[in-house]
Design a binder for these strands. Structure first.
Lengths: 199, 199, 199, 199
DNA sequence: TATGAATGAGTGTTCATTCAT
DNA sequence: CATGAATGAACACTCATTCAT
């Protein structure tokens, strides 16, 4: 923020843009895409209306951009977790524990991607972003499952199971405003990890 | 209400109200609560605006009523399934198969309850309906699991796991517009049912 | 309601009508003509909508009827005051004291006639009722002034002055939600009564 | 605002806002707050709906603004009258003559402040504006009375009497659609001014 | 006479977006 | 690159009244 020492570039070029994105991140994740109006968004970003529309062609494009940013951050943290030197089962546990903390900290608002996909029309760009994100989350679970099951097919299957348990936990924790789905999913997931491959 | 003997005529008593509810069911489940305007709702119901508001005090109340009706139907079919003379594992399979058909038939719109809860504010009546519905779905799975596991604690656990798998399948089938989550959840669920209770 | 035993007159004929009028009196005088809806009026009167419209052709007609009833009561009490065996100056004082009590008891809502005339269009029947009422109030003051001034012209003048002071007191007590205008008008009126006719 | 030197161009800055205010002044004073709809107001102002709401947050705020503007103008003309080099009794006469002309020119619509206060709820911002206006009108009469009566208490009393006579004249001229209340109040007021202070 | 379901024109307000500068 | 006034279609909802029974 303060770069008093840096003598060179004014560089404010995309600063405004980022300020808008930050506001969007805060408001969209707090109340959801459709309950946030463009006016509030602009006001809280402290930009002029037309300035906003110079950076983002529409509310929808802004939303897509926000989700792409979220997606990048999530993927990075996923990769970091995969790269960390702990046993895979513990990574599974850590993932669910991270979810628990996230939901508690966000008043159980649920998954920004799923939530947003629900309220935009079918042909929307946002939908594509959501699909891409979900695909990479699934990929994360597949890779993690690969560390547990040597066999590729079994890994894929375990990965999908964990993916669905995770998603179900998010959905129902949001609906019920309770934390037990996360705990239950975690323990079920761990069971699936350690079970004999007797299928 | 009960006119078992009276065979003929009026029958129009609450016809209008039901017509509105039917329109609401169609539009809300197709596009979601917030993407359907009261004007379209009224027009498609072929009633006057004031007539609508004589039957439902607000759009929100209408939505709550719609979900209550859905809830009743879902619970009935759940009870019917539980009462049917087939092995419990097959009931599990049937439940997932039913989901598959439902999602395919509804263009993967997902769960009306979860979807609606996402777009209404926290203190909303709709939220209470959703929580009630989710609680009864969970109860369904607990009862079904009770037919498989004699031990109550194990039944509860299995029920919750199936509940979450089911929910995750709905969520991700909706996000991805693909059917595999349902199939995967089904097979994972069946595995959980048949595994040795080795936990 | 149930008068199974009472054999004689049904007599309910205008009972309903009067119940509506009473409700109207309560609501109109409390909140004013335009802030009271026909629905609330009907509901609080505990009649069916069409029943209401059988007794009063419109909200406006009901209002006119209400004001006529009020007018009759006011005139009666005016006549009673005039007929009472007290000195005329004391009658003047009593009239203003009565106003003070009325305003305090009605949360300073002001004059129902003036208030209503303000919110109806020019050619309205209500306007005629208001004019008639005001004329009879003016007549009251003229008669009272006649008890003080033997000369007709002087009586008329004093009557009009008292009429206007009274009206000004009502108006400004309503605007300011304070009682002083009534007290001031009373004392000014009494002064006018007792002054030497030196004009 | 002050561009005494700049003789030319833009001048459009708050033009729209003022156009709306002018329309409001015309319609509200002609028919009253509640008989004027926002739609007509907007149409007659020749602006888009949203433009209106960018300038005034609500119909009520617009009304308050209109009354504030009226209040300013009235106070200015009151101060001008007080400052004019004529005997105080003549100022009193001029004030009533001004009222006569105003009422004749406005089809006896009465006082915009009193009229509006009648039709808004108790806690309304408009009510505060009305009270402020009435207080400053009373102040005007007190100052004018001060030019006639050297004693402060007597001046206050005379001022209040004139205030109430004036208000009563407005009210009843409005109710009766006749001009005599103004003439009568004028002559009564002048009598009060010239009488011996014999109280 | 009494009912209550039905009416349609109206209410005030907010939406995401574009324009001239 | 930034501004903010202007847009018009849509929003959810209420009004006084009439109709078939």
């Amino acid at each position: 923020m303060n770069r008093l020492v840096c003598m060179l570039p004014p560089m404010t070029i995309t600063e405004t843009r980022q300020r808008i994105l930050n506001t969007a991140a805060a408001l969209f994740s707090e109340r959801g895409y459709e309950l946030v109006g463009i006016n509030e968004l602009i006001e809280k970003s402290d930009v002029a209306k037309a300035t906003f529309y110079q950076h983002f062609r529409s509310k929808e494009k802004l939303c897509a951009e926000w989700l792409r940013q979220e997606s990048r951050e999530m993927c990075d943290s996923g990769k970091a977790l995969l790269a960390s030197p702990v046993p895979p089962e513990e990574k599974v546990a850590m993932k669910f524990d991270g979810l628990r903390d996230y939901l508690k900290g966000s008043d159980f608002r649920g998954c920004p991607f799923s939530n947003t996909a629900t309220v935009v029309l079918a042909d929307n760009e946002v939908r594509e972003v959501v699909r891409g994100f979900k695909a990479s989350v699934r990929q994360f679970w597949h890779e993690l499952a690969g560390e547990i099951r040597p066999d590729a097919a079994e890994a894929a299957r375990l990965g999908d199971e964990l993916f669905l348990l995770f998603s179900g936990a998010v959905t129902e924790a949001q609906n019920l405003k309770e934390i037990w789905p996360v705990e239950t999913a975690k323990s079920a997931g761990l069971t699936l990890c350690t079970r004999k491959t007797n299928t």
